[in-house]
Nucleic acid binder design. Structure first.
Length: 924
RNA sequence: GGGCGAAUAGCUCAGCUGGUUAGAGCGCCUGUCUUACACACAGGAUGUCGGGGGUUCGAAUCCCUCUUCGCCCACCA
């Protein structure tokens, strides 16, 4: 570990070495408690500061950091560091998710490697083993987050399966149950035959699949000459058929309604029912009804009072599971569903019942955790009644209590919320919060189902034995409570809860808008009576150069830790933040990290070198306090850089945006304001690099080398401006800025940039216009030098023809012009004769550069003529506009005024240019 | 099938409620080891703002339409 001297000598390496500094800096931040929020300082509990809270989307406890986490955390860290510097009591709650199915799958894989299954261990041992695994290797990601600089409050790290959070889960479940918002339902749900659990609608992901549509002929009972044909993609489910349905309006089949058809292979008579569900336009217009294996068929079956034979078991294997005696042919029993499909088709073919087979594009749902094809299955599950809960959550977004950014997600959210379906929250796995429901074996009254906040062993009604429901809850049920449970809910008097709920911004990926975000809002209203946050920042995805999502399976991912080791956390953060528009994807090349992260790495190095320059040229002798400088002491470049700093501060503030809605709800004009972190990064970069480094530093070199009062002013301004720049950049690149800030002259031991204040614009004062003129001359002269390929070492003479005031000013800065553009500036009252380049600057100043021996007159004339032609073309367009009566009448006065002023300037410029062309090249 | 969004420089994107000669980063070209930085400095080139139509004094910006991509939702067996 390297220690950081407070006032380092100037012999720092030319290249920033993040590895040597980052870990040490982070350790010092953490030791000093920089990131630990003090709830008592929140205004909500009588403190002196506005609270500002962010809740980390808890990564899976088994996860290791990938670039998506990096991106997500970088955004949050920029915001929380910014809020902290803004003087708010900033709390970023980190934590992990026990991730039910995902974690269970990992442990099952380990067991499989040992030749074991979870059943070999039994429930209790399996849960113990998983717990042990999680304790030992879980939470690695939280450590990794430190190395990318995440300034979370680790003293409050939470875990969705901790004892505290388990209390919250039970409380929420029981309350909802008591309000009859949780109920047990017997219906067809999505079942993963590999994970052996049910899934919510959101967890069963549709994938576009090319399948086959098989036509099967069902003979009409009592009329062997007639048959009707059904079309199905899953022929193996035919053994569970209890009817065929036709549309009541479909004339083709009207006479068959009420009659029976013979189910092939089984010779079973099943009724023909009329139901609107059958679409006359699809396939043959006849649909087979398999209530136990299709959610829609289940509804049809219910409407018509049909039985529900189950012919596929929990493993996705054909079997007579329930109400299905004699329905599965002997040959198919115990056969996997896909193999059974092939065999069924062959059997139908042999029986002469198979019609055509068409290829068919359709969506097949897959398990979001293991990608197995989901099987619709009839079973008993716990559901949350969503419609009443969704209403306030929908309203929150509509009224602006909660804003979603980018706003395109609002429509998606509203659509989902208005068509919301009940949420299946029970899972038939072992790793998770056990459903807090017990069944009494003995008594029936009032019913035998007991929901309890405490574990119970006996029935509160009859004292008999009870057994707990074996299901666990959907992992998203506990995540949905995250904003409350991490702050102490259900203890409504918990200080953190009072101090920080509701929080401010939630940063996450749009993929989990419904899984997580919507449910947090729902629970927030149900249990706390308010939304958990006022802004949702939905960021994009990390993609490779071909636009593919980075993923483990494709092997196109980038390990953020590699980037940290190679270029540092700041390089990673800056590259991600600067490259990511609001909601836009980030494109990186996993095969060329050097190129991908050059932006951030180069920027960190640039900052480092500005620091080196400062330390070398300013030294660590005491510096006049900036506040003591009088306006008349400031040089032209000082005034200019201070004005630019003010502008940069304002632009950064505007980019990050309003902290929170002023009155609880976002007004329309602020709904999309702020959180433009890429604009923030770009503005800060432009200021530091293109203004501070490229101009102010260059302008200060001469001054610093000449001891005296002006050098003291320059030292003071330079330190002040760099200090402010480091503050502006700290949220994005915390390490290098902290390392440099602590080396600034006057740094007080034990203080951190991380907990210092955000810059405020000073306002008023000199706008730095004088320096702009100098800048323009330097730029013009550099162009001339480049254009005419003048040797770099050679000094050029230039004559300026300008107003007396500008002339006086320029005379005072001739040394600067000389140094920056290697130009010897003199003044004339009239354009001298002879070959020369002539440049007209804004404000009418003319620069005449004699180029005897250097200039190619033909080329110069060519250039001037082109310039003149372009200008004249623009002027014509401008005249047309100004000559248009409609424009004068309708356009706002200030626009018209601006256009007139422009005409004036361009006309003058064109005149001068024309004269120059005539002088140099003769009449055209 | 329904809904939403996008199309601007070679690439990734800014361009806010219509109004300077449409911008940035990266890339590209030309010079330069100028005493903080070659991970740098200086200079430069590049766009019928997806096509067509309309509204307007004025359109990259608003409206319609077409084309092409993307996203979300959905029970079409």
């Amino acid at each position: 570990m390297t220690t950081i001297p407070d006032h380092a000598e100037a012999d720092l390496p030319a290249q920033y070495d993040p590895a040597a500094t980052e870990a040490a800096i982070y350790a010092r931040w953490e030791q000093a408690g920089c990131f630990t929020a003090d709830a008592s300082r929140s205004m909500r509990v009588g403190g002196d500061r506005h609270p500002y809270g962010i809740l980390m989307p808890p990564p899976n406890v088994t996860a290791i950091l990938h670039v998506g986490h990096g991106l997500n955390s970088a955004v949050q860290d920029v915001l929380i560091r910014w809020a902290r510097m803004k003087g708010m009591e900033a709390l970023w709650v980190p934590g992990t998710d026990h991730a039910g199915i995902a974690t269970q799958n990992v442990v099952e894989k380990q067991l499989a490697a040992e030749g074991l299954t979870r059943d070999d261990l039994g429930r209790e041992l399996f849960v113990d083993r998983t717990k042990e695994f999680v304790e030992k290797t879980g939470g690695v990601i939280l450590q990794q987050l430190r190395s990318i600089g995440a300034s979370a409050d680790w003293t409050r790290a939470a875990y969705t399966f901790s004892p505290e959070l388990s209390v919250a889960v039970r409380e929420a479940f029981v309350r909802l149950y008591e309000k009859k918002l949780i109920y047990r339902g017997h219906r067809v749900i999505h079942w993963c035959p590999r994970c052996l659990t049910s899934l919510s609608d959101e967890e069963a992901e549709p994938q576009e699949t090319t399948g086959a549509l098989y036509h099967i002929a069902y003979a009409v009972e009592g009329d062997s000459s007639r048959s009707i044909t059904v079309a199905t993609t899953r022929p193996e489910t035919m053994f569970g058929d209890v009817a065929v349905a036709v549309n009541p309006a479909d004339e083709r089949y009207q006479d068959l309604v009420g009659k029976h058809v013979i189910l092939p292979l089984l010779d079973l008579a099943i009724p023909v029912v009329a139901d609107d569900y059958a679409d006359p336009a699809f396939g043959t217009g006849v649909v087979k009804i398999t209530p136990a294996h299709d959610a829609n068929d289940f509804e049809v079956g219910r409407r018509h009072g049909l039985p529900t034979p189950v012919v596929i078991d929990m493993h996705g294997v054909m079997n007579e599971v329930a109400d299905a005696r004699g329905r599965v042919p002997q040959a198919l029993r115990g056969v996997d569903r896909f193999e059974a499909r092939t065999q069924t088709v062959a059997m139908l073919d042999a029986a002469g019942r198979l019609g055509k087979k068409e290829t068919h594009q359709h969506n097949v749902r897959h398990c979001y955790r293991c990608d197995t094809v989901v099987e619709p299955r009839l079973s008993d599950q716990w559901f949350v009644r969503m419609a009443p809960l969704a209403a306030p959550a929908l309203d929150a977004v509509r009224t602006g209590r909660v804003r979603l950014l980018p706003e395109k997600w609002v429509g998606v959210y509203e659509h989902w919320m208005t068509n919301i379906r009940d949420w299946n929250i029970s899972r038939q796995i072992w790793w998770g919060h056990r459903v807090p429901i017990w069944y009494c074996k003995a008594c029936d009254a009032p019913d035998n189902v007991i929901a309890s906040r405490e574990d119970i062993t006996t029935c509160p009604h009859c004292g008999g034995d009870v057994v707990q429901d074996t299901d666990v809850l959907d992992t998203w049920f506990s995540s949905g409570l995250w904003p409350m449970s991490t702050l102490g809910w259900p203890n409504e008097n918990a200080t953190d809860l009072k101090a920080f709920y509701p929080t401010d911004v939630l940063v996450t990926a749009p993929e989990i808008l419904f899984f997580w975000v919507a449910r947090m809002i729902v629970f927030g209203y149900e249990f706390m009576g308010d939304a958990p946050f006022h802004s949702v920042y939905l960021h994009g995805t990390a993609r490779d150069t071909q636009g593919r999502k980075m993923s483990k399976s494709l092997g196109n991912g980038i390990d953020p830790m590699d980037v940290v080791h190679l270029y540092g956390a700041d390089a990673l953060r800056y590259t991600l933040i600067a490259g990511m528009g609001l909601g836009a994807d980030v494109f990186l090349d996993p095969d060329d990290l050097d190129k991908s992260f050059a932006t951030g790495r180069n920027f960190a190095t640039k900052l480092w070198n500005i620091g080196r320059f400062l330390l070398k040229n300013v030294g660590d002798a005491s510096v006049r306090p900036f506040e003591d400088l009088r306006p008349d002491e400031l040089g032209r470049s000082d005034a200019w850089i201070l004005a630019r700093l003010d502008a940069a501060i304002r632009e950064c503030d505007r980019a990050v945006g309003p902290i929170r809605p002023a009155h609880g709800t976002w007004p329309d004009e602020e709904r999309a304001a702020g959180l433009r972190l890429n604009e923030f990064a770009e503005t800060a970069r432009r200021f530091v690099w293109n203004e501070l480094a490229d101009w102010y530093l260059e302008a200060s070199k001469g001054r610093l080398l000449t001891p005296g009062a002006d050098a003291e002013v320059a030292r003071s301004v330079l330190v002040h401006v760099f200090d402010q720049a480091l503050r502006l950049l700290h949220p994005i690149v915390p390490f290098v800025t902290e390392a440099l800030w602590q080396r600034l002259p006057g740094h007080v031991d034990g203080t951190f940039l991380a907990t210092s204040s955000w810059p405020a614009a000073r306002g008023g004062g000199d706008t730095g216009a004088d320096f702009e003129v100098i800048k323009e001359i330097v730029e013009a002269m550099r162009r001339v030098r480049s254009e005419y390929a003048i040797a770099p070492g050679k000094t050029v003479d230039a004559f300026a023809m300008t107003s007396a005031s500008v002339r006086t000013m320029l005379e005072g800065e001739s040394a600067l012009v000389s140094r920056l553009a290697r130009t010897q500036l003199a003044f004339v009252d009239a354009v001298p004769s002879g070959a020369a380049a002539n440049i007209v600057l804004s404000g009418g100043t003319q620069l005449i550069v004699p180029l005897a021996g250097l200039i190619d007159v033909t080329k110069e004339c060519e250039r001037l003529r082109t310039e003149l032609a372009n200008l004249e073309k623009q002027l014509v367009a401008l005249e047309t506009r100004l000559g248009n009566p409609g424009f004068i009448d309708r356009a706002p006065a200030n626009i018209v005024e601006a256009e007139r002023a422009k005409r004036e300037e361009w006309t003058t410029r064109a005149g001068l240019l024309r004269a120059r062309v005539e002088g140099l090249c003769g009449k055209a």
